[in-house]
């Protein structure tokens, strides 16, 4: 039986490695989580004030709703989700070929463009890390 990603050390260790590099790409990172698409937290970094399980659940719902909107409007595959608020923004991207979502919260000191680029690079790096044996 295949282990779920949030219980699989391969995902946890490589996820930590990938998320560790995210802050170097975008120093205003406040919190980041790698989660299964059904809302289990695999690994998270920074932001001890956040409830990792709740953040993962909300990110899962947000991702699914955005995917549903793209599907209903026949826009093709949803590429990313951005929630921009007065004091920061959340960027979410899927990890290709895996049932995983990377969700990262940045302060308003970062531009959304830099945050999005950093999140996408991190997701691609994680995909590469997961390809290795």
């Amino acid at each position: 039986m295949t282990l779920a990603p949030h219980l699989d050390s391969k995902y946890i260790v490589r996820g930590e490695l990938a998320l560790g590099g995210l802050r170097d790409l975008a120093p205003s990172l406040r919190y980041a989580s790698l989660l299964t698409e059904d809302g289990f937290s695999v690994v998270s970094v920074a932001g001890k004030e956040f409830d990792s399980n709740r953040f993962a659940s909300m990110a899962s719902s947000t991702q699914a709703l955005a995917d549903a909107v793209a599907r209903e409007l026949q826009l093709g595959d949803n590429e990313f989700v951005i929630v921009a608020a007065a004091h920061g923004h959340v960027v979410q991207v899927r990890v290709d070929d895996h049932p995983l979502v990377l969700a990262a919260l940045f302060t308003d000191k970062e531009t959304i463009g830099i945050s999005l680029t950093a999140a996408r690079r991190t997701a691609r790096r994680l995909k590469t890390l997961l390809m290795a044996n």
Binding site: A4, S60, S61, A64, E72, P99
Partner: peptide, 22 residues
Amino acid sequence: VSTEAANSDRSVADKPTTTVAL
């Protein structure tokens, strides 16, 4: 309109997908 995701928790319900928003 469905928001289904791959189900990681097959011990609770043995089905391939589960609703995560509505």
